[in-house]
Amino acid sequence: MSTPTSHFTDAERETVYRVISERRDMRHFRPDPVNKTVLKRLLNAAHQAPSVGLMQPWRIIRITDGSVRLQIKGLVEQERHATAKALAERENEFMKLKVEGITECGELLVVSLCDQRENDIFGRRTLPEMDLASVSCAIQNMWLAARAEGLGMGWVSMFAPDRLAELLSIPHDAKPVAILCLGHVDDFYSAPMLETQNWRQGVKLNQVLFENCWGQKAE
């Protein structure tokens, strides 16, 4: 059996960093189907994510029923309007933003935290939210793999978790955390969409990096 090498070429390293820098939260899709072999690779990438205590708390539901898609879109639309109201003076501006591509994307996935999570305390006794961090790692794995495959992905978080859970028969002690739109796109955004739409500008690394204590700027 061959031993995997621990070294990568300069070109291989550059590809990893390029994929990270060009990943985008996509909202515009073409309806072309996603190749099933590619989809399996993406799901495997998600499942290879690190997880606290090796609990692998992600549960992924593939939505193939068109009527269920429409119901999910309805839940998102309800929350979109509620969010707009909560934004007060930015309500009209927010309503002009495209926040999902649920009916356009080739694949729709719902990612949930698993049930019976309270039984796992390895690494979670003082930080129970580490299960959510693990699920986020799985989603990021899929996101980066999708970008490498030339596919777009968008994470939709505008929904009432209890209502989505009821729709998808998710157990009461599990919790849906993401609706993922996955599919072909005409092009990837040149920058995060919220920046190009002048909603918000990202901050620089030196604004979030401290040294030794909070607020102490790092070299």
Results as ranks from 00 to 15, higher is better:
Phe8Met: 14
Asp10Pro: 06
Ala11Gly: 00
Glu12Ala: 05
Glu14Ala: 02
Thr15Ala: 01
Thr15Gly: 01
Val16Asn: 03
Ser21Ile: 14
Ser21Asn: 07
Arg23Glu: 15
Arg23Gln: 13
His28Ala: 02
Phe29Cys: 02
Asp32Phe: 10
Asp32Glu: 15
Thr37Cys: 07
Val38Pro: 00
Leu39Met: 12
Leu42Tyr: 10
Asn44Pro: 06
Ala45Val: 13
Ala46His: 09
His47Ala: 06
Ala49Val: 08
Ala49Thr: 06
Pro50Met: 14
Val52Lys: 01
Val52Leu: 06
Val52Ser: 00
Gly53Asp: 07
Gln56Ile: 13
Pro57Gln: 03
Pro57Ala: 00
Arg59Lys: 11
Ile60Pro: 10
Ile63Arg: 02
Asp65Glu: 09
Asp65Cys: 04
Ser67Thr: 10
Val68Asn: 00
Lys73Trp: 11
Val76Phe: 12
Glu79Trp: 12
Ala82Phe: 12
Ala84Gln: 06
Glu91Lys: 07
Glu91Cys: 09
Asn92Pro: 10
Glu93Leu: 12
Phe94His: 04
Lys96Leu: 15
Lys96Phe: 15
Lys98Leu: 09
Lys98Tyr: 14
Glu100Arg: 06
Gly101Ile: 09
Glu104Gly: 00
Cys105Gln: 05
Cys105Pro: 13
Cys105Tyr: 05
Gly106Ile: 12
Gly106Asp: 06
Glu107Ile: 09
Val111Pro: 00
Val111Arg: 01
Ser112Thr: 08
Ser112Ala: 01
Ser112Ile: 14
Leu113Asn: 02
Cys114Trp: 14
Cys114Ile: 13
Asp115Asn: 05
Asp115Ser: 03
Arg117Lys: 14
Gly123Gln: 04
Gly123Val: 08
Gly123Pro: 15
Arg124Gly: 02
Met130Glu: 04
Met130His: 04
Ala133Trp: 08
Ser134Val: 13
Cys137Met: 13
Cys137Asn: 06
Trp143Gly: 01
Trp143Lys: 01
Ala146Leu: 13
Gly152Glu: 11
Gly154Val: 11
Phe159Arg: 02
Phe159Gly: 02
Phe159Val: 12
Asp162Val: 11
Ala165Ser: 03
Glu166Ala: 05
Leu167Arg: 06
Leu168Ile: 10
Leu168Pro: 00
Leu168Lys: 04
Pro171His: 06
His172Arg: 06
Lys175Arg: 07
Lys175Ser: 08
Val177Glu: 09
Val177Ala: 02
Cys181Thr: 08
Leu182His: 03
Val185Pro: 02
Asp186Pro: 02
Asp187Cys: 11
Phe188Val: 12
Tyr189Trp: 10
Ser190Val: 13
Ala191Val: 13
Pro192Gln: 08
Met193Trp: 14
Met193Arg: 05
Leu194Gly: 00
Gly202Lys: 07
Leu205Val: 11
Asn206Ser: 06
Val208Gln: 04
Asn212Pro: 13
Cys213Ala: 08
Trp214Cys: 02
Gly215Ser: 04
Gly215Glu: 06
Lys217Leu: 10
Lys217Ala: 14
